[in-house]
Design a protein around this nucleic acid. Structure first.
Length: 755
DNA sequence: CTGTAGTAAGTTTTT
DNA sequence: CTTACTACAG
C-alpha cells in the first residue's frame, strides 16, 4: 500500500493495528485526522471490512463532516456508508428507532438548554421555592452532571453524600427538582441533550437484544477527541465494543477542555485499566507549528500535574518569536490586531483565511469586529449567539414541534398566545394545571378547552386547536418544506414579522425565510431518506451555529478557543489575555480548574502554524462598565525565551489609561512596553495589611445603597456613605474602618456586599 | 388580557 | 448592556 509510505512509523502503527483495543495519544498537530481517515480506508480496502460495520464518533458536527469529506476523497464513495457523527446525533438517530422500547414516542422532541432552563424555572415556581437559591443555570448543571454520571433521580435522592452536599449548599430540594424535571420531560415526550446519552445507556442496559443488534453492526468503534468523553458516553462505547473489542480511541489529554459539560479526563488516564491488553501509540511529532510555538505551548502544559507523559516535538524551524502586544483599551487592542493583520497580509501575501482571532468569551468579538470593519477586512464569526436560538426561529420551530409532538409543553407555552390571540397567562396556567390534575395529555386538554376553562379564552383555544389540527394533516401529507411554509403562513407568524418594518423586524423576517430555505435544502438533499418534518426537527435540534454554511469568501476567522479545536491557521491572535478573563474567574475555584484553563491556553497556542500573537488590554468594557484588567498569569508562565514584546502603543491613549487607573507610569507611555512583574506601586500598601476573607467574592454593585456594609479586597471593611453617577461611571464614597473615607469608581472596585 | 415602565440580576466554554 | 420578571393602568 503506497499511501502508507507517507506516514511516519508511529502513524503507520496506528493505522495498521486495527484489531483489539487501541489508544492513540495524538499530540497537537500530529496528523490525527489523517491517521483516522487512513485507518478507516485501511479497514475497508485492506481488511475487507464493510463500511457499514464501522462507527466513528466525534464531538462536533463539523469534525464529522470534515472527516467524511476526507475519507471520500481518499477512499471513494464506498466509505460514505460508515456511521459517522457526534455522540448526540448518532444516538438520537438510534433512539428515534428504539425509543418506544423505553417508553418514549419515536417522534420525541429534543429540548435545548433554553427549553430545559425554562422548564426548571416553572418547576421551581410550582414548588414555591426561592428562584434566587435555585437558579435555573445552577440547577440544570447539577442535574446534567448527575445524568452524565448516570445517576438517576432515585439514586441521587438516596445518596447520603449527595444529600449532604446539597444541604451544605442550602439546596436540599435539588433531588426533588431533578425528579420532577425528569417526570415532566417524560410527559412532554422530550429528551434534553444529556438524555440522549442517558437513555441510550438505559436502552442498552434493559434491552440486550437491541444492544446485541448494534454490537453486531458496529464491529469497529472509533472515538475521536476521547479526552472529552463523559462517563455516559464512555459506557456506551464500551458496551458497543464489548463483543468484538475493536475499540480505538484517539485523544490528547492536554486538550481536554470540556470538564464543564461532564468530560472526565480520567477516562483517558485510566483507559488502560479497562483494557489490559491495550495497544498504545503516541504521536508526538508536530507537523503544524514552528519550534517556538511548540516550545511555548509545552512550557505552559508542563505545569499541569494531571497528564500522560509525552514529548511533543517538531523538526520545523524556529520561526518568529511570539509577539506580545499590550493595549490600553479593548478597542485599541482590536485596532492593533486589525492593522497587524492588514500589514502582514500585504507584506507576506497572505489570505484573510490565514488569520484567526481567538478569545475566551464570545462577548469579546465585538471590539474586534468594529476594528476589522473599519479597515474593510472581511471576517466571519464562528459560534456566538446561534441562529437557532433567535426568537423568531425558535417560535417557528415551536409551531412545528407542537404539531409533530402535541404534548411538548415548552413549545406549547411559546406559541399558544403568539401571535396574540387572547389567551393570557391565567388561561395557559389553567390548561397546564388541568393536564396535570387529570393526568391528561396537553393536547387533549386543549381540544376540550370548554370543559376546563370557561369564557372567551376557551373559544380562542378552539380556534387554536383547529389550526394545529390542520397543520397535522399537512405534516402527514406533505414534505417538511411545504408543511413548514404553510405553518409559517397560517400561524400568522410571517405576517406578524412582515408588518414590523424596523431594521430588526426585517432581519427577523429574513431569518425565518432562511430557515425555510434550510428546510428546502434538507428536502432536496438526496441523502436524506425521511423527508418528513419530524425527521427534520430531530436533525436540526442538534445543529449549532457552527454547522450552517457560511459564505465561502476569503475571510478572517473569529471564534472562541473552544470552537477552534481541531483547526489550524498560519497566524493566530490570542486576545484578551487578562487575569479573570483568561483564566476565567468563574473557573478559578480549584487546581483542576486552573489546569483546564491551561489546557485551553495550550489549545489556543497550538492552532498557529507560523506565527502567534498574545494581546491584552488594561481596560475593557464589560456589561456596559469599564473595568481595569491585569495581565494574565499565563503570560508569566509561558517560557520567556519564546516571547518578544512588541508594538508601540499610542501615547495619548496610554497615558489616558494610566491616568484613569490612577497609576504611575505615564512616563513609559511611549516606546516599547512589555509585561513587567507587577510593579510595587500597583499593589497598594493597604493590601499588605488587610487580607480579604477566604470566601471573598465580589458582589454585583448594582443595588449598592447608602449605609450598606461592604468589604474591599484591599481596604477591608467599610460603610457606604453615598452613591453618585457621573456619565457612565458610578462612584461610591465609602468610610473604611482603617483607611478613612475613599471614593471609588464602582466599575473598577471589587466589593463584597455584606447583608 | 395587553401594554408599558420600572426593577433586578446576570453575564464561560457546547451538544 | 442585556434579559426576565413585576406592578399597574387601561
Amino acid at each position: 500500500m503506497e499511501y502508507l509510505d507517507s506516514l511516519n512509523p508511529e502513524q503507520r502503527l496506528a493505522v495498521e493495528h486495527t484489531d483489539g483495543p487501541v489508544m492513540i495519544i495524538a499530540g497537537a498537530g500530529s496528523g490525527k485526522t489523517r491517521v483516522l481517515t487512513y485507518r478507516i480506508a485501511h479497514l475497508i480496502y485492506e481488511k475487507g471490512v464493510d463500511a457499514f460495520n464501522i462507527l466513528s464518533l466525534t464531538f462536533t458536527n463539523k469534525a464529522a463532516a470534515e472527516m467524511r469529506h476526507r475519507i471520500e476523497t481518499l477512499a471513494g464513495l464506498e466509505a460514505r456508508n460508515t456511521w459517522m457523527g457526534t455522540f448526540h446525533s448518532v444516538f438520537a438517530k438510534i433512539l428515534r428507532v428504539e425509543a418506544p422500547k423505553i417508553g418514549y414516542p419515536s417522534n420525541f422532541t429534543i429540548y435545548d438548554s433554553d427549553d430545559s432552563k425554562s422548564l426548571i424555572r416553572t418547576i421551581v415556581k410550582e414548588m414555591r421555592l426561592d428562584d434566587k437559591v435555585y437558579k435555573a443555570n445552577a440547577v440544570l448543571s447539577r442535574i446534567s452532571g448527575a445524568k452524565n454520571r448516570l445517576i438517576t433521580w432515585k439514586v441521587y435522592q438516596d445518596d447520603p453524600y449527595v444529600k449532604a452536599d446539597d444541604e451544605a449548599a442550602m439546596k436540599p430540594k435539588m433531588g426533588e427538582i431533578y425528579q420532577r424535571y425528569q417526570d415532566r420531560l417524560f410527559k412532554a415526550g422530550a429528551m434534553d441533550f444529556d438524555d440522549l446519552l442517558f437513555n441510550t445507556n438505559v436502552l442498552f442496559r434493559d434491552h440486550l437484544d437491541v444492544l446485541n443488534k448494534y454490537q453486531q453492526r458496529f464491529r469497529y468503534v472509533m472515538v475521536d477527541e476521547f479526552q472529552d468523553t463523559n462517563l455516559s458516553q464512555y459506557l456506551i462505547t464500551k458496551k458497543l465494543a464489548a463483543v468484538h473489542q475493536n475499540i480505538c480511541v484517539v485523544g490528547d489529554d492536554a486538550q481536554s477542555i470540556y470538564a464543564f459539560r461532564g468530560a472526565d479526563i480520567q477516562n483517558i488516564l485510566n483507559f488502560e485499566k479497562d483494557y489490559p491488553d491495550l495497544f498504545v501509540v503516541k504521536l508526538e511529532q508536530n507537523y503544524r507549528s514552528t519550534k517556538t510555538i511548540v516550545d511555548a505551548a509545552n512550557s505552559i502544559i508542563d505545569k499541569n500535574k494531571a497528564q500522560l507523559k509525552k514529548n511533543v516535538w517538531t523538526s520545523n524551524g524556529e520561526g518568529d518569536l511570539i509577539e506580545l502586544i499590550k493595549a490600553s483599551t479593548d478597542s485599541e487592542e482590536g485596532r492593533i490586531v486589525a492593522s497587524t493583520i492588514f500589514e502582514e497580509r500585504n507584506t507576506k501575501k497572505l489570505n484573510n483565511s490565514d488569520f484567526a482571532i481567538l478569545y475566551r468569551t464570545n462577548s469579546q468579538s465585538r471590539a474586534m469586529e468594529e476594528a476589522l470593519r473599519k479597515l474593510n477586512l472581511t471576517y466571519k464569526i464562528v459560534g456566538g449567539l446561534s441562529f437557532y436560538q433567535r426568537k423568531e426561529i425558535k417560535d417557528l420551530m415551536a409551531y412545528m414541534r407542537f404539531t409533530v409532538n402535541p404534548v411538548d409543553e415548552e413549545a406549547f407555552k411559546r406559541i399558544v398566545n403568539y401571535p396574540k390571540r387572547g389567551i393570557g397567562d391565567t388561561s395557559v396556567d389553567k390548561i397546564l394545571v388541568a393536564a396535570f390534575d387529570h393526568d391528561m395529555q396537553l393536547w387533549e386538554v386543549v381540544q376540550n378547552a370548554h370543559s376546563f376553562i370557561g369564557g372567551r379564552a376557551a373559544s380562542q383555544l378552539d380556534d387554536f386547536a383547529t389550526m394545529i389540527k390542520a397543520f397535522k394533516i399537512e405534516v402527514e401529507r406533505k414534505d417538511a418544506f411545504e408543511a413548514a411554509s404553510s405553518i409559517a403562513k397560517q400561524s400568522g407568524l410571517l405576517r406578524e414579522l412582515y408588518e414590523d418594518k424596523t431594521i430588526e423586524g426585517l432581519n427577523r423576517y429574513e431569518n425565518v425565510q432562511e430557515l425555510l430555505n434550510g428546510i428546502k435544502e434538507y428536502v432536496d438533499n438526496e441523502e436524506n431518506e425521511d423527508k418528513s418534518l419530524g425527521s427534520f426537527l430531530q436533525e436540526i435540534a442538534l445543529l449549532t451555529d457552527n454547522d450552517r454554511d457560511k459564505d465561502t469568501t476569503d475571510s478572517i476567522t473569529l471564534m472562541t478557543i473552544h470552537s477552534s479545536k481541531g483547526l489550524e491557521f498560519k497566524q493566530v491572535f490570542v486576545v484578551g489575555l487578562e487575569e479573570d478573563l483568561f483564566p476565567s474567574q468563574m473557573m478559578m475555584q480549584s487546581r483542576e480548574d486552573l489546569e483546564e484553563e491551561r489546557r485551553l491556553f495550550y489549545v489556543a497556542a497550538t492552532r498557529a502554524m507560523d506565527k502567534l500573537y498574545f494581546t491584552y488590554a488594561l481596560t475593557r468594557y464589560r456589561y456596559g462598565r469599564l473595568l481595569n484588567c491585569e495581565p494574565s498569569r499565563f503570560l508569566e508562565e509561558v517560557s520567556p525565551d519564546c516571547i518578544k514584546v512588541s508594538k508601540k502603543v499610542s501615547s495619548k491613549e496610554m497615558s489616558g489609561a494610566f491616568r484613569r487607573e490612577g497609576l504611575p507610569g505615564t512616563s513609559e507611555s511611549s516606546g516599547y512596553i512589555g509585561i513587567k512583574k507587577k510593579p510595587e506601586s500597583r499593589m497598594p500598601t493597604a493590601m499588605k495589611i488587610h487580607t480579604p476573607s477566604p470566601d471573598f467574592k465580589p458582589s454585583n454593585t448594582n443595588n449598592l445603597k447608602a449605609e450598606q456594609l461592604i468589604e474591599h479586597p484591599k481596604f477591608g471593611f467599610g460603610k457606604v456613605q453615598k452613591i453618585e453617577t457621573e456619565g457612565i461611571n458610578r462612584k461610591a464614597t465609602i468610610q473604611f474602618e482603617h483607611f478613612g473615607e475613599k471614593t471609588l469608581l464602582l466599575s473598577f472596585a471589587k466589593l463584597r456586599i455584606i447583608d
